[in-house]
Amino acid sequence: MHTFLREANDGFVPPSSADFDFAPIFGNSILFTKPVLMVFLSVVIAATFFIASSRKAAIVPSKLQYAGESIYTFIRNELGRDVIGPEFMRFVPFLFSLFVFILVNNVFGVIPLLQFPTMSHIGFPIGVTIFSYVCYHYVAIKKHGLGKYLKDICFMPGIPKPVYLILTPVELLTYLVTRPLTLSMRLFANMFAGHLLLLVFVLGGEYLLMSGILLKFLSIFSFGLAIGLSFFELGIQCLQAYIFTLLTALYIAGALADEH
């Protein structure tokens, strides 16, 4: 009975974070691996798509132009006008490229042959977050002046003076470290966990397929679940790109507001 269920003797090796390391493509330079190549690819794909969709702009739009314009309109209206307010037009190009870049890189996770979300390496979300971090702090400093901005962050009204000693470090840490950290960490953790989940079911199905005759049939469920979860992942990837852009827009709106 035992051999009937398990013929393969080597134990199942669960996927780990080591599965996220790739060999260098050219020579042994660690700077150029598959995720880096995919970032370049994503820029080429996004640029090609939007140049092609706006090349022959017509009053009666073609299907391609309609697709490109509906993404742009969505970002401009939902994230720009409704969130930032009257000055939104300055930030629409930034928000739009942020959204498209993150979206294309995330969706790489479910496209066959590529199948790796670039944002599941923590370096890429941090790099994207630095842009939005610099952007909303710059906007706030330009609007209020450096001194007033720091004073707004450090000393909030309505509390007795000695308590500032306890509250100001926490407030500073929140504004300067924790908020951008949660911004990048959420994107990273979602992509990492999603890719790991798919790996568990695909590798588990493969292991079952190599096992005894009864377990070969069970591998169908594992592979089926992997395919189902791929579609679920596609939803999460689009949602995460949207939430990242939404929070950037909200932080910019907070920086533009009169009081914090």
Binding site: V170, L173, L181
Partner: peptide
Amino acid sequence: VNDEAAFWSIIAYLISG
């Protein structure tokens, strides 16, 4: 959308404290 910003800001405050 304000709820969304408040939600993540609360988590950030708790973590930094």
